[in-house]
Amino acid sequence: MFEIFGIPSQALFGQLLIGLINGSFYALLSLGLAVIFGMLNIINFAHGAQYMLAAFAAYILLTTLDIGYWPALIIAPLIVGAFGMVLERTMLQWLYKLDHLYGLLLTFGLALIIEGTARNFYGSAGLPYRVPDSLQGGQNLGFMFLPNYRAWVIVASMIVCFGTWFMIERTRLGAYLRAATENPTLVRAFGINVPRMITLTYGFGVALAALAGVMAAPIYNVSPQMGSELIIVVFAVVVIGGMGSILGAIITGFGLGVIEGLTKVFFPEASSTVIFVIMAIVLLVRPSGLFGRRI
């Protein structure tokens, strides 16, 4: 046991770990928002609600059907992603020609519906979700104790984030996607089904949020308001990073999580507001965001 800046290393690294965990979720969610915004020109306010929905899906799968964490990690994002695609086909697709703000208002309404329904059935209290047996326990690293599950969340979300980046920036499918973002009409002229691509993109973005939701379930309690609390912070993250760059969204997400964790150690009162303060500073210094293109 040793001290850094007068703080016991255990506490420092513990908060750093929590910061990285939060950062993983910020990164996954802001990545999803950026992908959706790129294709649909819509800010998905329901993103937090969909994240929460997936946590509940995992909880329900476990309690009623006895389906554990690992299958739920695949099934819940599929269910919630499919639900997202239904929403896109039935509602969102009618808004593309209108002002962007209508998309925000519509998805805000959807978020209220999802959260309200969850509260009706499960109340506001959190429901516990057990860490899967295979990831129980942890490693003693000498300077700190690292729970296995938390290590898994950080590694898994990094892999998913960079996998997404690779798919969008380095594969043929990603090239179509980027082209359709720039000029959908032209891409359609080449015989690519752009509306279907938009639907799949929305489903994919929502599935990313859902994946984060399932991974979050054993760490935080599963509760109806877990999404709305998170999504506002993620909005600030998106404003800081700018939505122009996929890699930017990932780096900003992890970075801000860590900064938030460190604030908890050195200045706990400010830990819930530090991201908003950073947002204000970034707006003053670099209005288009750290990685944003000038708009």
Partner: peptide, 18 residues
């Protein structure tokens, strides 16, 4: 009806926008 108010507000939002 308690929490359903939230759901109904959401439905009104969606209906108004669409």
């Amino acid at each position: 009806v308690g929490e359903w108010v939230l759901v109904i507000q959401g439905v009104i939002f969606v209906a108004c926008v669409l």
